[in-house]
């Protein structure tokens, strides 16, 4: 991995954010919403509206508005919310923190479950354990988050009363209370990824265990544990890094649904309400932040992969 590659990869992140910004700005421009009306209300006078439009630059050509907005974003200014009148940036970034807590827990939970599941299915290929894992993963990839969430709330919260059905308390405020409310959302949002990643781990490991170098390792008389862990798993789990990183896209989508259902004040919920209220600056900023999160995670995953797998010669 060369400095050249890292440079290229960083340039790509900026290109991604540029395209996303153009796209999201374009969409929000076409959206049938008049920011001035939204801020001042339906009863505002024509003069007042016109004055506000002038002040907000809404009468400028679209590209000037874009440049103005993009310039602001580059300086960390995402504009002000049309609904609350508050700056968008700080509110969204604190919401992002909440969402990342949820996503982070989900990732860890997913890895703890999906990796052993995939490994067990692969080494017990064709045996009951494999069939059970594969059954679970077929069910898992076929349940949308809102179904899992609704069923989970029905069972765990309503019928058994084990956990609170919704709500969010920051972990810094009340760790155990917060954790208790995070359990259901974390489980729900990771179901799909558990199913997907365990299947990937299984098929990667099955492929690796059929390679010549695994045969060679066995025929050197190495202990089966060493063959599996030192020779097999290492090679099978490397591609999983990339798959998990790409799944972060799903994860972020799932976060939107789950935050909505469990009333978690994260970035997904902010986005949903912004979309319903046509709060353009919040939509723009929210999408940018999501895309940036995805890009950075994938960049990190690529670096990690290249660092672990010395074969990859990026130029």
């Amino acid at each position: 991995m060369s400095a050249n590659y890292i440079l290229k990869r960083i340039a790509l992140i900026f290109y991604t954010l540029f395209i996303v910004s153009v796209l999201v700005f374009g969409i929000t421009q076409i959206l049938p919403a008049d920011a001035a009306v939204m801020m001042l209300g339906e009863n505002a006078t024509q003069e007042a509206l016109e004055a506000l439009r002038q002040r907000m630059g809404l009468n400028d050509p679209v590209w000037m508005q874009y440049l103005h907005w993009a310039g602001g974003v580059l300086q960390g200014d995402f504009g002000t919310s049309l609904r609350t009148g508050q700056p968008v940036g700080p509110a969204l970034f604190s919401a992002l923190g909440t969402s990342l807590t949820l996503a982070g827990f989900a990732l860890v939970f997913m890895l703890i479950l999906a990796m052993p599941m995939g490994v067990i299915a692969a080494i017990r290929r064709g045996k009951p354990a494999d069939l059970i894992v594969s059954f679970i993963s077929y069910i898992g990839v076929s349940l949308p988050e809102f179904v899992t969430a609704t069923l989970a709330v029905m069972l765990v919260a309503d019928m058994w009363g084990l956990l609170p059905p919704a709500g969010y308390i920051p972990l810094s405020q009340d760790f155990w209370g917060g954790l208790e409310r995070l359990i259901l959302p974390v489980v729900v949002v990771s179901v799909m990824m558990i199913a997907h990643v365990s299947r990937m781990v299984r098929s990667e490991l099955v492929d690796v265990m059929h390679t010549d170098y695994i045969r060679a390792a066995r025929l050197k008389g190495l202990h089966p544990r060493r063959v599996l862990f030192r020779h097999g798993l290492r090679n099978a789990l490397l591609p999983t890094i990339t798959i998990v990183a790409l799944d972060v896209g799903y994860l972020l989508g799932g976060v939107i649904v789950v935050e909505e259902i469990f009333s978690i004040p994260g970035i997904g919920r902010s986005l949903m309400s912004a979309i319903q209220n046509r709060d353009l600056p919040v939509i723009q900023a929210g999408v940018m932040i999501m895309a940036a999160t995805y890009s950075i995670v994938n960049f990190a995953a690529d670096l990690m992969y290249a660092w672990l797998d010395k074969r990859i010669q990026y130029d």
Binding site: D212, Y213, L219, K220, G221, L222, L238, L308, D309
Partner: peptide, 20 residues
């Protein structure tokens, strides 16, 4: 295996683990 009898394979490119 590996102590009393051992084996040399056809293609060294695939019989060596690429990540070790």
């Amino acid at each position: 295996r590996g102590r009393r009898m051992s084996m040399v394979f056809q293609d060294p490119a695939t019989s060596l683990n690429p990540t070790l």
